[in-house]
Design a protein around this nucleic acid. Sequence first.
DNA 1: CAGAATCCCCGAAGATACTG
DNA 2: CAGTATCTTCGGGGATTCTG
Lengths: 137, 137
Amino acid sequence: MEHELGVKPMSAECLQHLKPVRDSLDILNGKWKIPIIVALLHHNYRFKELHRLIDGVTPKMLSKELKELELNELVKRTVFDTTPVTVEYSITPYGKSLEKVIFELGKWGSEHRARIMKGKESIKHARCPEKETVLPG
Amino acid sequence: MEHELGVKPMSAECLQHLKPVRDSLDILNGKWKIPIIVALLHHNYRFKELHRLIDGVTPKMLSKELKELELNELVKRTVFDTTPVTVEYSITPYGKSLEKVIFELGKWGSEHRARIMKGKESIKHARCPEKETVLPG
DNA sequence: CAGAATCCCCGAAGATACTG
DNA sequence: CAGTATCTTCGGGGATTCTG
């Protein structure tokens, strides 16, 4: 079991630690989950409000990703028995626990962006300088 | 500009902070990037070694994701002029800067996994208990 | 060995329309 | 309002084969 690949170890235990990382990414994945979470970290919103707030999302996708977030108990769905019916989405305490992770991701992302802007011309990366004009004032 | 959506603010600045987060996720995204990075955080590997080490990846995908990682200067590709040619991949210092982020993702993922295992039966989540038998001994 | 080229398929996601 | 239903397209990614 020592060197199945020649001289180098298999790093099997190392790759084992992969799973939790992938779990997190799976939960955060999908174009709209992070926007949803970030939005709900600041306010409760109703479906249509989220739809308006998050630029580009379709009702179908919004609904789908909200459901997934709900399944993981990151987001709570509350129905108010008005007419017509009102539904409010809010972040759960568990959802709040993602704040640190999201912060770290944002931090690294900022550094990365800064690094690219700072004339690292060797990098012709795709997404960064341009893209995503965020909701005009 | 105060309440365009009724009584609630737009949270435009909030959604602005999204971009760096998405940058990070974009870079980490793809089934194989994290496995590659984690592997290279421990050793340098050659193409075929990575191919064997990372269970399930095809040469095409491995090549593609390695290229993307290279573009972002997270991974370095070194060609040795032997016959036949040898290529070694290694993590760059910049790639190393991802360690913290990956650690946080792993930490949250572990907690999430633990939480689910701990009999939170209300959650019928997809990926977690089973899946991914990691490289048998 | 280290990949590139080719073919192909299936599922994610957009557009549009409809319902309780 | 808060979604669902259907239809369709598009490209990510698998399997396989080929090359320097």
